[in-house]
Structure formats: C-alpha cells, structure tokens
Design a protein around this nucleic acid. Structure first.
Lengths: 181, 181
DNA sequence: ACCTGAACACCGTTCAAGT
DNA sequence: ACCTGAACACCGTTCAAGT
C-alpha cells in the first residue's frame, strides 16, 4: 500500500471506531469519511462494505474470543467455561450498538465480510457446548446455532435502552435454561 | 371527518397494511403514500408518526391480546395461561417484521403512539406472571419488565431469517427458564 | 495508484400554495 | 378542511475526472 493510502486507511479506522462507538453500527459512512477529512470514495475503496469496515475493527476481538474459548476449554470445568465464554460474547457484541443484527445476517451470508468470524464464533461455542453436554452440564437439545441465537438475543436486549438494565439478570435466566441442574 | 378525508384515511390503512406486511415496519412512508395514490402530506396529516400508523393498524390485535389475557386468567391454570399468552404475544409481534424494536422503544417513551398499548401489554403479562408465581409455577425473581424483554427478544429472533427456524424451540427453552419444575 | 466529489436514487419531515 | 408536492437535509453507492 502506498504511504498516503496507508495513512488514510489508518486514520479512517481511528475515526470509524469513534463514530461507530458513539452512534452505533448503522452510523453514517458519509459522516465517517467527512470527519476523517477524506473523500467518500476513499472510504469505499478501503472498505467496500459496512461489514468490511466492522470486520477490520472487530477482528482483534473476534480473535480474542477464539483464544479465550480455547483457554477456557483447557483450564475450566465445562459448565463454568461455557458460561464464562457466553458472557464474553454478549459483552463483545456491545462493542457497537446494533452490530448483533449485522452478525446474525452475516452468519447466513457467505458473501459478508463478517461471515467467517461469525461462523468461527459459532463453532467455538458449539465446542464448549458439546463439552458441557458430555459432562451433563448442559441440556442436550440445544445446538450451536441455538446458542448463537440466544447470545444474539441477549446482546440485542442490552442494546435497547429500556431493557438494558435487565440484561445481566436475563443473561442468568437464559443461561440457566441451557444449563442443567 | 369529511367524506374525502375518510376515504383517504381508510385507503391508506389498507395500503399501509399491505406494504408493512411485505416490507416490514420500517417500510418507506413515501412508498405507502405513493401506492395509495395520495400526497405525502396527506399521510402525515392522518398519521403524524410511523408509530401512530402502526398503532392504528395494531389496535385490534392489542385489544385482542388484552381480552385473551383476561380469558386465560379466568379459564386456565396459572402456568398454562401464562405460557399460552406469551406465545400469543410473540406471534402478535410478528405481524410486521421489526415492530418489536419500535415497541421496546415505545414502552420507554410516553410520547409514542404505541406507549399505552405496550404498557397495557406489560401489565397484562405482569398479572398472569404474578398469578403463576403465587401458584409456585413461575420463578419469583422475574417481573413484568423481564417478561416483556424476553418476549421482545424471542419476537426479534423470529424476525431474523437465519434464526427464525429456531424460534419455536427457543421459545420453549426460554419459557422453561421462567417456569419452575 | 489513489483520491475526490458530483451524480443518482432514495429517505423522513415540513410547509406554502392550492381547492 | 383538506390535499398536494416541492423543498430541505439527509442517506448509500457508483464512477468520471483529476493527481
């Protein structure tokens, strides 16, 4: 990448992170370009879709969740590992308000820049779930997609101003439904 | 209301119902006016907000849910009454894709045209929940707002194409978490 | 190679002008 | 009273023209 392009790219990411944090995942791309002092076409050149931009911003967190899943699998009892990871996932999805909807759409759309990350996330959850199920700690009639859906629903709840105060409690309620005993 | 106004009003409702069913609760109001063969200002005159339009379209269903709650309270055991009504609520929220978000926002906003209906809905749920709790059929650490949040989350799940097939199963899972035994 | 911003086709909302 | 549609301030997306 040419030096000037690199500079634009990096600065766009800084500005995008700030704007998306402030306004949510559906923030105006025009506004991001404007605040970055860059032409709108430049943003589109570096990030052809909103998902591509988010993927770049979320990559580190996605990777961290994968690492965390592996660590928990190695170090914690099945039940605790699963719950702890689910909590991390819900917290992660709060990075940008409204990102959950994009992730849910992305897991169904192989063309989405977020597709791979979401599929990996579901796969990691599926492993932790299977481990808990083998241990008798989680009900057997729930699968990785169900888990992904529940995490998404809980993250969505936390994005709704009126319901956010209940999110932590409802996490316990819903998690309790997946776990046995 | 003048005869010509009445005619526009009625026709707008017919067209709006069709367009919202087809495109979801965030459908273009311009498109509705266009398809109704009416000026955009006419739509705004009759329905000053999107919520006002939805409130008019959903009024019958809201009322039916209230009646249903009262009937179930009188005729069914606490546990079954609660579950049955929750199922009705989730089904109702599927009338228009995306309406759940508006309802969740409305319950916090006294200015919203949907506010009253949503508050009534929560109140009816709270009554059925209290009855179940008194009967020992529902866990005591969940309240009407939690219930509203869970219904909203389940309705939201059903609106996501990739997760909709799991909605019925997850309804059972989540409902099972609220019920005891 | 890369950047820019005008152009296009859309929104929601308001309101002056018409009947 | 009621209706209309232009006007305004926004979008996302594309692409010809510039450097």
């Amino acid at each position: 990448m040419r030096a000037d392009a690199r500079k634009n790219y990096d600065h766009l990411l800084v500005v995008a992170r700030a704007v998306l944090t402030e306004q949510g995942a559906d923030a105006s791309l025009r506004d991001i370009a404007r605040r970055a002092g860059v032409g709108l076409g430049t943003l589109y050149r570096h990030f052809p879709t909103r998902e591509a931009l988010l993927e770049t911003l979320l990559r580190e967190s996605f990777d961290a969740l994968a690492v965390q899943a592996a660590e928990l699998e190695a170090s914690s009892p099945p039940r605790e590992a699963l719950v702890s990871w689910l909590r991390d996932c819900v917290a992660f999805a709060h990075a940008y308000r409204g990102v959950t909807e994009l992730m849910v759409a992305a897991i169904e759309d192989p063309e989405s820049a977020l597709h791979g990350s979401c599929v990996s996330m579901r796969a990691a959850g599926t492993r932790l779930l299977a481990r808990a199920q083998d241990d008798g700690a989680a009900r057997p009639d729930v699968d990785g997609t169900d888990l992904f859906a529940l995490v998404a629903a809980l993250a969505w709840l936390g994005d709704q101003p009126g319901l956010a105060p209940r999110a932590a409690h409802l996490f316990d309620v819903v998690t309790g439904a997946v776990l046995t005993g």
